[in-house]
Design a protein around this nucleic acid. Structure first.
Lengths: 232, 232
DNA sequence: AGAATAGTGTCTATAAGACACTATAAG
DNA sequence: CTTATAGTGTCTTATAGACACTATTCT
């Protein structure tokens, strides 16, 4: 029966990634409660039984309250539950993966974006480093066969911008010609005609594109990964 | 703080698939508690805070206690949590996906295997039908680019058996020649030399193979799916 | 004009699909 | 020998990588 066993604490934590200055960043939030009071950690919270219809609602509410901004993409990542991940006892973290568009500043509210390559992430409280690694693996895996990276960009984007996200994620240099062919062979993006200039740089200005629908789209395989894919 | 909000009930439920008589089956277990006492549902249970180190241990314990047998594969599927999935109030089901080898019988203990095409699955308690659909999607997705289907088969298997699992999952007819080429182009299986006969059927007996390691292996893409892949 | 960046055309290499062919068993 | 099933060889087709070429902007 439901009362015969100790109930674990349940939290919903969110790994929010953004692509800033050519590198992937993860959003951390300063804790306002003990334990680990005042330290930076993944934004998270508990279920409000009266307000939250389901887990995704909890995730969106936590993001809105603690961080704010426009979540371009959200999916459940994985649940982490064990006797020792939290000093208060058995707990479960239902973690979500969110993607947001590039922000000019790297600081907002009590939150900040930190490069995922930052060594200090290993010092995060609880198992939040492990959760971030899982989220990174998910992003790479999904990017390898889908248009996931468009959610790092604005509504309109250039093919060069899109290609650079893939190139960063997989540490490869993609052939511009093959990349365009791959993208166009699917019926997923369309030209934004009006106002086609995009840059304040030199050189030929790039054409602007946008997704035909805001959905994740399978592309079969964007690039060949040497030996990396794995799924959760 | 941990005490300021109502704690949801947390369950661990397992979707166990097996490939029996050419069709995918899911394992159901007769409930020995209310609610839904005596009805069939996914095998599941609660966390034993003293015995269970983490969620996967809980899943394996539940499987062992309620069903028993050799779990060839286990991975976390997804967590389902909402205010109304269980009449007792807010609850979270951390669900797992398990694969077992074909059983001769379809009945054991208080469990039985039911074809995933069975209409009656829609009548399962809670959101168990939805969980099964999610598990099915995961299996198909993962099978489309990996050797996941070997976990439906025994230690040794023939290429025809393996191909038939793929063919069933994707409702396609795969080219035997192309299939062999694909499998052998990866360095993942090896001949079992001794005792190479495999059948009591007519025709040329098939060669036996086994995985070189018991790990899931990425194959890039086994077949082209028309438009189906999606990930969780 | 020259530099810088964006986009195209085309050859080649690789892998998948089609399908006819050979191989090994039972009756 | 016939039938049934397993496995091979090879032609064709689709797609990815390489890379030279054209296009458009700025100074």
């Amino acid at each position: 029966m439901s009362s015969s066993y100790l109930l674990p604490n349940v939290f919903v934590d969110i790994v929010v990634f953004s692509f800033i200055n050519g590198k992937l960043h993860v959003l951390l939030h300063k804790r306002n409660k003990s334990p680990e009071y005042g330290k930076y950690a993944l934004p998270g919270g508990q279920i409000h039984a009266d307000k939250d219809k389901d887990l995704e609602v909890t995730a969106r509410r936590v993001f809105k309250q603690k961080v704010g901004g426009n979540l371009r993409y959200l999916e459940q990542l994985k649940s982490f539950g064990s006797a020792d991940r939290d000093e208060r006892g058995w707990s479960v973290s239902v973690s979500y993966l969110g993607l947001v568009e590039h922000y000019d500043s790297t600081v907002l509210n009590d939150s900040l974006f930190v490069s995922v390559e930052e060594e200090l992430l290993k010092e995060l409280p609880f198992d939040h480093f492990e959760i971030i690694q899982e989220a990174l693996a998910r992003v790479k895996n999904k990017a390898s066969y889908s248009t996931l990276p468009v959610f790092f960009l604005g509504q309109n984007f250039t093919l060069v911008e899109l290609r650079e996200v893939y190139e960063y994620l997989f540490r490869v240099s993609l052939n511009p010609s093959a990349f365009r062919r791959k993208i166009f062979s699917q019926d997923i993006i369309e030209r934004v005609d009006f106002e086609e200039v995009s840059n304040n740089k030199k050189g030929r200005p790039a054409e602007l594109y946008r997704m035909k629908s805001d959905q994740l789209h399978d592309m079969g395989r964007v690039i060949m990964l040497p030996d990396e894919r794995r799924g959760g």
